[in-house]
Simulated assay, not measured.
Amino acid sequence: MKRYVSLLNLVLFACAAAGCTQANPTNSAAEAADDKPKIALIMKSLANEFFSTMADGATQHQQANADQYNLVVNGIKDERDISRQVALVQEMAASGVDAIVIAPADSQALVPALRRAMQEGIVVVNIDNRLDHEMLTKEGLEVPFVGPDNQAGAQAVGELLAGNLTRGDAVAILEGLQTSENGQARKAGFEAAMLAAGMKIVDSQSAQWEMSKANEVASSMLSEHPEIKAILAANDNMAMGAIAAAKSVGRHEDLLIVGFDNIAAVQDAIRAGKVLATADQHGDQLAVYGIEKALELLREPTAIVADVETPVDLVTVDTLSK
């Protein structure tokens, strides 16, 4: 018995000296068998209901298709934390993912990190906010954009608003981040609708997609321009901030507010008459569309890289009641 123990100790000592680790046959077999592609979903602020809904939709899709791919979900603390999102791209690339599906916080700042990921053979799919076309062309990159026509969606919201105003009325716009393509597109859609209807845009400022910032900016707008009859917010978080601002200056009864994203809080506000309309870009499915595009490109690496336009629909009290 002592001889057996001594031999066992000798073997263990030799193994330790050689740097051996104890193997787990079950885990090793599982890892070897699990050759499914690994996809990283990198979003903007998970504090924004739109992106938490997007994350839930992606997670449910992966669970329903667990035999096809693995999913890692990431987000940043707020819409302006661009450096953290760049770091997430680098971390996901270093972890060995096969594809990155990203809703970039900035249309330009993420391009260099994504270029390096693509050089490592990682498939990249852009959702929600389009990456800067000129930068992609300059870098010689082809990245498919999967998402809605933000300008058309915002213009539809603006046209509905115009039908509730009188020609010559004053309006204001709460913009998203000015370096984000979707913010620029939504602003352009709002402007096109207002100018076509003969409205007067008396103020247009960025509230950086954030509710608290929108409250602050909208309060200032309404104080400086009491003639404002409506506020067009480039996302629903900012529309909620505009509601708070309107209440604080006693304009909650007559000020018209529209948004974009169709989050649950704004649906409630529409039913309560606090918001006139929003645009639904189907956040619960947007990441899913991007994941499906990534899987397609992983299956067919030589496939043509093409954009995919996804639905965007007008939401009003009438559509919610159906």
Rank of each mutant, 00 (worst) to 15 (best):
M1R: 09
Y4C: 06
S6T: 11
L7R: 13
L12Y: 08
F13C: 12
A17I: 03
A18G: 14
G19L: 13
N24H: 13
N27I: 11
A29F: 10
A30T: 12
E31G: 03
A32W: 00
A32Y: 06
A32N: 10
D35H: 14
L41C: 02
F51N: 03
F51K: 04
F51I: 11
S52R: 10
D56N: 10
Q62H: 08
L71R: 08
V73I: 15
G75P: 01
I76N: 04
R84A: 15
V86T: 15
A94G: 14
V97T: 11
D98L: 07
V101L: 13
A103V: 07
P104F: 00
D106V: 05
A109L: 00
P112E: 05
P112Q: 09
R115G: 02
A117C: 09
Q119A: 14
G121H: 14
I122T: 10
V123F: 09
V123H: 04
V124W: 02
V125D: 01
I127Y: 04
N129M: 03
L131H: 02
E134I: 06
M135K: 14
K138V: 12
E139S: 13
E142F: 00
G147R: 03
G147T: 12
D149G: 01
Q151H: 00
G158T: 10
G158V: 08
G163Y: 10
N164Y: 13
L165Q: 03
L165K: 04
D169R: 05
A172N: 00
Q178K: 11
N182E: 04
Q184H: 06
R186L: 01
A188L: 06
A188H: 01
F190R: 01
M199V: 11
V202E: 09
W209V: 05
E210D: 13
E210A: 15
E210R: 10
E216Y: 07
L222M: 15
L222I: 10
S223V: 15
H225Y: 14
E227V: 12
A230W: 02
L232K: 06
I243M: 06
A245T: 05
K247E: 15
S248H: 05
G259D: 07
A264E: 15
A272C: 07
G273D: 07
L276P: 01
T278D: 05
D280M: 12
Q281C: 02
H282T: 10
L286E: 07
A287I: 07
V288K: 05
V288Q: 04
Y289M: 05
E292W: 09
A294W: 02
R299T: 09
E300K: 10
T302Q: 09
A303V: 06
V305K: 00
A306W: 00
V308C: 03
T310C: 08
D318F: 14
L320R: 09
